[in-house]
Write a protein that binds this DNA or RNA. Structure first.
Lengths: 102, 102
DNA sequence: TAAATATTTCGATCATAATGGAACTATTCA
DNA sequence: TGAATAGTTCCATTATGATCGAAATATTTA
């Protein structure tokens, strides 16, 4: 995973509303939640919510599946895991310049 | 950890330069890195770097310790761990509205 | 105390993000 | 086909973030 992709994801998660949406989906279990169900939880105008959701979809953090009139949203666990790994990757393995200092 | 605090941290980590700084520090091992050393890695003007670092310090993601003329920076592993946990917390435990659907 | 080094603060500019009402599109159902 | 429901896109406004040169501050060393 590229650093710039990771930063994009983190930036998207850095908005309180979007973080709430993703956490909601992570907890939601199989099937995820419809946009309208998410709206009941976060209580913001539909257009604002739609924008936030499209940010999340664009970053790959969630995906959607249409089921009749309803758009069901689910989290991308693989990407969330990758993100978490990248954040703590190579912990304490040393950086050249730091090594040179010793 | 509050959702709004987590979002603040993620927002800070969502900038590519700041993410690079934190990852650099995570890899750096005991002692961390001086601001000047970080600058050699990221290659941006001192004033810009200083702003990014103060964002990170403000969010609690890193801390600093003066050592003579040098300001040594270190990551806050505890906060990084808390962040990671929050992101995947209560995975699939279900959300009321989703449960009601079944 | 003056010069050198390390880093921050100031101040201004430019770019990007968040927000939400209104109009639009897609899908179902009578 | 027309009305209802679910969600998106358009558009404009307001707010926030990124950037960096120049000047300021802190610390050491000559």
């Amino acid at each position: 995973m590229e650093l710039s992709d990771a930063a994009l994801c983190l930036e998207k998660l850095g908005n309180p509303t979007r973080l709430e949406i993703v956490r909601l989906l992570v907890r939601s279990g199989p099937g995820g939640l419809a946009v309208g169900e998410i709206q009941k939880h976060v209580g913001i105008p539909a257009s604002t919510l739609s924008h936030h959701i499209s940010h999340l979809v664009g970053a790959g953090l969630i995906w959607q599946e249409r089921e009749g009139r309803v758009l069901r949203c689910q989290p991308n666990f693989g990407l969330l895991d990758a993100l978490v790994s990248l954040l703590l990757a190579e912990c304490c393995t040393g950086v050249e310049i730091a090594a040179a200092r010793r």
